[in-house]
Amino acid sequence: MDVQSVHELARLLGASLAMGLGSLGPAIGIGLIGRSAMEALGRNPEARGPIMTNMLLSIAFAEAIAIYAFVVAILLLFVV
């Protein structure tokens, strides 16, 4: 295996791992947020509006972590 293909392999592997592992935490986080939102919704269904908005905002924050991983992945793919 020459240097070029090793470099290529490392790049692809790194990008995939970054995306995959980086999504783990946010995925769990989004699941937890969704669960809490559903629980809150079940506890008082009339507060549907605020719960929905806050849930979406929290999901966006958790998702941002995955987005960082995604940025790293595309940096690896397209820039390095």
Partner: peptide
């Protein structure tokens, strides 16, 4: 940096 990459990453991800 977090501001930048949050917005950039989200929009780029959406496009992709």
């Amino acid at each position: 940096i977090s501001f930048t990459f949050r917005l950039f990453g989200n929009m780029m991800a959406g496009t992709i």
